[in-house]
Write a protein that binds this DNA or RNA. Structure first.
Lengths: 100, 100
DNA sequence: CTTATATTTGCCAATATTTGACAAGTCAAT
DNA sequence: ATTGACTTGTCAAATATTGGCAAATATAAG
């Protein structure tokens, strides 16, 4: 499982019977780039997520979640302290929320 | 709480009664850089964590955990889907571990 | 086997981000 | 006013990421 976001995008695109060549221009990129994004070789830009969500008639929140998860995974994959780090980070996030 | 790693380093350094000017050269940087690192304005390089841990007579694992947590936090702070993303990422990590 | 279409891969220049180094700044103690 | 510790701002150099193109691969059809 290389990129959850990429795999999901591919699934959604195929469900809509769309080719890379059809979707790519809507994101102002070429098919090669979109191919790489679906394969997880490159990352879609954060601000393009709502756009691709609309194109694929999918939930922006769902795609954002997967996209963020990929970014997090990139940081901690291969790290011995991955789980501990996640716990610490989670605490900090929840603390922040409480203080809002 | 800007940077858990930075704050911990500062605490440890003060506990050892060391000045920035004494520690910085051991990490091959100037005091300005180390100051920024402690303030969370810049990040220490991952591979320097064991070095600073030894200088400060601290646990490398602990510092690595805090450092990683800071990186994760950078990704998801201000993100509505932060918690969901963390859950997804965590699952992926545990899956990976199981398959080792 | 040849063609056509979809996707993938490799490369490199353009762009963006991070870093290192230095100078000048604040602050507290004397 | 001087000293020492730390902080802040700036900017060029080093790194990393991206965009775009060309060529490679894969699959299906004739």
């Amino acid at each position: 499982m290389k990129s959850q976001f990429g795999e999901r995008v591919r699934t959604l695109r195929e469900k809509q019977n769309l080719y890379l060549r059809q979707v790519a221009p809507l994101l102002e990129m070429d098919t090669a780039q979109l191919s790489k994004i679906e394969k997880g070789v490159r990352q879609l830009k954060r601000e393009q997520i709502p756009i691709i969500a609309e194109i694929l008639k999918a939930s922006s929140d769902e795609l954002m979640t997967l996209w963020l998860a990929d970014q997090i995974y990139d940081v901690v994959k291969d790290e011995k302290m991955a789980n501990e780090a996640m716990q610490v980070a989670e605490k900090k996030i929840n603390l922040k929320k409480r203080n809002k």
